[in-house]
Simulated assay, not measured.
Amino acid sequence: MVQNNKEFNHGFWHINLQEFVCGWGASFINISVTYPVYKIMFRQMLHGVEIKSAVQELRHEGFAFLYRGILPPLAQRTVSLSLMFGLYDGTKRPLVKLGVNEYVAKFVAGMTAGTVEAVLMPFERIQTLLADSHYHTHFKNTSEAFHYVCMNYGYRELYRGITPILWRNGPSNVLFFIIREEAAVRLPKREDHISRSVQEFLSGAFIGASLSSLFYPLNVLKTKMQATVGTPNLSLSDAFKAIYTERGSKITQVYKGCGINCSRAFVSWGIINVSYEGIKRLFF
C-alpha cells in the first residue's frame, strides 16, 4: 500500500501524482480489453460497412492482425488519460483557490487538459494507418510506420487531422468532468464494494457513451482525414462533403458505426471509471 500522496506545486499547476497514476492504469486496463471492438468500429467508420461485414473482414485476416496497431493506442491513450485526469485536477485546484467560479474553473481545466492531450496525436495518426487493411502490406509494425511517414513526408504529416481532434478533446473533457462530478455528488453513497463498483461502472459508462455519440461525427471526419498518406490535406468541410457524397448523400450514413461506437464507449468508460476509482482506493 502506498501511504504517501505526493503533491508538487510547479508554477501555476498543482501536480497530484495519484491522478496521473490512476488515469494511466485505468487506460491500460481499458485498451487491453476493448481493442478488438475498436477494430470493428474503425472499419465501419472508414468503409461505411455493416457490423457483420466488418467482423467477417477481421476474421478473414486472422488473429495475427486482430491486435495489430495496439501499441500506438497503448502509448497514446495511457499517457493521454493520465494527462487528462492529472492536468484537469492540477489546473482546477489552483483556480478554485484563487476564487474563480467552480464551473468556470472546470471549463478552463477541461479545455486545458484536452488541448495538451492533442500533443500525442501522432500515435492516433499511426494507429489509423495500421488499422486500415489497405496498409497491411506497407508497414510491419508501429516503428516502421512512424519511420516511413516521417522520412517521406515530414513530421507535419503526423498531425494530419488535428482540427477535429482539438474540437473533440476540449469540449468532451469539460462535459465529462462536470457530469462525472455532479453524478458523484448526487448519486447515493454505496458502502458495499460490489454495489459501489457497479454504480461507478454504470456512471462512467452512461457518461462516456453519451459523449462519444455526441462527438462521433468528429471522429468520422478525423478518420477520413487521416486515412491517407502524402495526399493534400482535407479541411473539415471538404472531409464532410466527401463522406456525405460517398455514402449516398444521406446524413444518417455519416453515423455509420455509431451504434458499436456507443456500445464500445459504454463498456470502455465504465471500465475506465471503475478502474480509476479502484486503483485510487487500492494504492492511495
Results as ranks from 00 to 15, higher is better:
His60Phe: 05
Val79Glu: 00
Gly69Ile: 12
Ser32Ala: 13
Ile272Pro: 05
Phe146Ser: 00
Ala227Cys: 08
Ala131Ile: 04
Ser212Tyr: 15
Val274Tyr: 06
Ala26Tyr: 03
Pro73Cys: 15
Pro94Cys: 04
Val100Lys: 07
Arg43Leu: 09
Arg43Val: 02
Pro36Phe: 07
Phe266Cys: 07
Thr91Ile: 08
Val229Asn: 00
Tyr148Val: 03
Glu117Met: 09
Asn152Asp: 04
Ile194Gly: 02
Gln76Asp: 02
Leu74Met: 04
Asn4Ser: 14
Thr78Pro: 00
Phe12Leu: 13
Glu19Val: 03
Tyr276Leu: 12
Val2Trp: 11
His193Met: 07
Ile126Gln: 09
Val254Met: 06
Gly154Cys: 02
Ala64Asn: 01
Glu117Cys: 08
Ser197Thr: 06
Gly204Tyr: 11
Gly62Ser: 03
Asn101Gln: 05
Pro164Gln: 03
Tyr38Asn: 12
Lys224Ala: 13
Glu191Ala: 10
Glu246Phe: 11
Gln44Thr: 00
Tyr255Ile: 08
Ser197Tyr: 11
Tyr135Ile: 00
Phe107Gly: 00
Ser32His: 10
Gly257Met: 02
Leu58Ile: 10
Lys140Asp: 09
Lys97Leu: 15
Asn101Phe: 04
Gly48Met: 07
Asn233Leu: 14
Leu214Met: 12
Val33Met: 14
Gly208Phe: 14
Leu98Glu: 01
Val267Gly: 08
Asp192Lys: 13
Phe139Glu: 02
Leu95Gln: 02
Pro73Arg: 10
Gly23Arg: 13
Phe201Gln: 03
Ser235Trp: 15
Met151Cys: 12
Phe284Tyr: 10
Leu221Gln: 04
Glu50Gly: 12
Ser80Met: 12
Asn141Arg: 04
Arg43His: 01
Lys222Ala: 09
Ala242Tyr: 09
Val96Phe: 11
Val274Gly: 00
Gln253Leu: 08
Ile251Met: 08
Asn141Met: 15
Glu277Ile: 03
Gln44Asn: 00
Gly23Trp: 14
Val149Gln: 07
Asn219Ala: 08
Ser203Lys: 15
Gln226Ile: 05
Tyr35Lys: 11
Ser235Arg: 04
Met225Ser: 05
Asn5Gly: 03
Gly257Phe: 01
Glu19Pro: 05
Phe85Gln: 06
Tyr153Asn: 00
Ile179Phe: 07
Val274Arg: 05
Phe284Trp: 05
Gln127His: 03
Gly69Tyr: 00
Ala242Pro: 08
Glu19Ser: 15
Glu200Gly: 02
Ala105His: 06
Glu117Arg: 12
His193Lys: 13
Lys106Pro: 04
Glu57His: 05
Leu74Arg: 01
Val274Phe: 11
Ser237Met: 11
Phe240Ile: 08
Gly270Lys: 02
Asn152Gly: 01
